[in-house]
Write a protein that binds this DNA or RNA. Sequence first.
DNA 1: CGTGATCTTGAGGGAATTCAATGTCGGTGG
DNA 2: CCACCGACATTGAATTCCCTCAAGATCACG
Lengths: 225, 225
Amino acid sequence: MSSSAQQQPALARYSETIVGAGFKALNLPVQVSTHVIRLRRDAEIYGANEPAEYVYEVISGVVRSYKVLEGGQRQIVNFYSTGDIFGLEFGGVYSLATEAVEDCAVLVVNRHSLISAASPASSIARQLWLLTAVEVDRARQHMLFLIKTAEERLAAFLLLMAKSSTSGLEVDLAMSRQDIADYLGLTIETVSRTMTQFSKRAIIEMSTSRHIVVRNPAALKRLSK
Amino acid sequence: MSSSAQQQPALARYSETIVGAGFKALNLPVQVSTHVIRLRRDAEIYGANEPAEYVYEVISGVVRSYKVLEGGQRQIVNFYSTGDIFGLEFGGVYSLATEAVEDCAVLVVNRHSLISAASPASSIARQLWLLTAVEVDRARQHMLFLIKTAEERLAAFLLLMAKSSTSGLEVDLAMSRQDIADYLGLTIETVSRTMTQFSKRAIIEMSTSRHIVVRNPAALKRLSK
DNA sequence: CGTGATCTTGAGGGAATTCAATGTCGGTGG
DNA sequence: CCACCGACATTGAATTCCCTCAAGATCACG
């Protein structure tokens, strides 16, 4: 895996403006209505195939988007955290379902008024395009995860989590082992075993199953390839 | 695998206008310069990290986009065939390399002039967004491939090929076993074995390794889940 | 017809899954 | 307060699936 850790090529430079900065960077005109909602853990934000009326930004907490396959298997497509925008659909329908991984606050933006605001000389059209381009990047990144071994996937995942955490090498996982398994395309047992492995090899430290300190980031990086 | 075969939700409806119809549907203004080039099998169209000067449309033949991972492993991200547009980058740099799978003709469109033409009330901005949204769809579809068993991946792949073939159930694979393996995240041996399996079970018929007739599409569909 | 590239087939081994049991944590009620 | 319960996580053993390594077979082309 080239993996999330080192390469975020082309796009990264361009996406700073809005990704992470959220909708603020867009300087939305006043006619675009927004409001904030609060969600409890596991609350559904929208279901797959529902009409896509809104676009969202995570204010606090973590959100997961996923797809349920025939056979009931759940594939988590993305975790979104503070500053991430999700639910932007080109077509009028959400292609994935989303839920709160933990208690969340999200900013809700009316999709229609957002798109309307995009028509004139504003840079909004370009930003809508950018947001979708970011999703392509994420999806391709994720794709590369899935052709790796369990160890490599976990290592890359932990680095990803560590990177987006404020405290560098200390990570509080918002998601359960099952969530991680469904994101990485593994079973919960394999995730657990591999975490234990990392711990035994002193690559990470787990005070609780959700609280991880990365002790040897270099080793993680090596393993993530 | 839910797979490419049955679900192409939201987007499909909206994308008819341009996807498959190619750039014609865009009614490009005259200042957008285009020309056609011909490529031999395995010829490079552009490399990863090169400046993205052009956007392309497949006129005839099949093109592959791919990424080479550390360790030399090649992951094919997409196969593009007639009518498909590829190489549209939001940032100024190609994130993937592309090559001709077989002899090809491709339409070359200047990216800069295309984007310039997108500014006014034209629908081009929207179309650029759409094209990127289509890539998201493809990437997510592909992602779902990769969490499946070898048999499921192959079945889904063959259905995908059959769908885009003119003659319904008769497929002439443009790509080698190695290409298929690199697309599906399998080894060439596993691809070969699984194809032989399908053949022995009378699900497909192989007169040559590249020419496949789907004898039992229902079985393929069942296996692809 | 020979040569290299592509594809197929086989045997063995390794990695992840499945099935099953045990362990841990947080909360709730006695 | 602590005993119990359910959700979540870990561990173990057996099995399955795919990969690796190796050898043939087939095809395309000079």
